[in-house]
Simulated assay, not measured.
Amino acid sequence: MTEFLLSVHVLVAIVTVGSITVAASMFPRVALRACGGGEERGGRSEGTGTAVLLHRVCTGYAVAGVVVPVFGIATGAQLGVLTDAWLIVSLVLTVAAAVLLGLAVLPGQRRLLALAEGAATEEEARPTASRLSMTTGMFNVLWAVVVVLMIVRPGSTTGA
């Protein structure tokens, strides 16, 4: 059972968190380019359509990503490591990343999309894009630390 729980946890983490980190990292540059104009297709610039798609990927996978800590906690319970410091820190960082995603990254994407769809210039949108890039970078670093903790498991008797 532990192998199944761990497999689901890792697979869902790769698919959801990996997709979010890539899409969220690409988003500010694509949305900023859309603010600079671009080829019109169906009443919307090509860059704006791509930015909308990247935002949908982030939003959709954020919802699906709830499964990651659920299966992570179930796996931790099976292994008897729920009170290990590395797991507790990982859970705290996961919550921090989720809060950052929900309260800063996704709303920042919506603000930048509104600028792009409102025909803002690239110069007008640059401060918003810069803040969003920084926030997305912080989100990505949190996940990188969680991955390292999951692999190294400092202080764990089951660690590598």
Results as ranks from 00 to 15, higher is better:
3 E>L: 14
3 E>M: 14
7 S>D: 08
7 S>T: 15
8 V>W: 08
8 V>P: 07
12 V>S: 12
13 A>Y: 09
14 I>K: 05
18 G>A: 12
19 S>D: 03
21 T>K: 04
25 S>W: 09
26 M>A: 13
27 F>G: 04
29 R>M: 13
33 R>N: 10
33 R>S: 14
35 C>E: 01
36 G>H: 02
37 G>L: 04
37 G>Y: 00
42 G>C: 05
43 G>L: 11
43 G>E: 08
45 S>N: 11
45 S>V: 14
50 T>V: 14
55 H>E: 12
61 Y>D: 03
63 V>T: 10
65 G>S: 11
66 V>G: 10
68 V>D: 04
70 V>R: 01
74 A>M: 15
76 G>I: 14
80 G>F: 05
81 V>A: 06
84 D>T: 06
87 L>A: 02
87 L>F: 13
91 L>H: 07
103 L>I: 09
104 A>N: 02
111 R>A: 14
113 L>N: 02
118 G>C: 02
119 A>D: 12
120 A>V: 06
122 E>P: 00
123 E>P: 00
123 E>G: 02
124 E>F: 01
127 P>F: 11
127 P>A: 13
128 T>G: 08
131 R>V: 12
133 S>D: 10
136 T>D: 07
137 G>N: 06
137 G>S: 07
138 M>D: 02
139 F>P: 02
140 N>V: 14
145 V>W: 05
146 V>G: 03
150 M>H: 08
150 M>G: 10
155 G>H: 08
155 G>K: 07
156 S>Q: 10
157 T>V: 14
157 T>M: 14
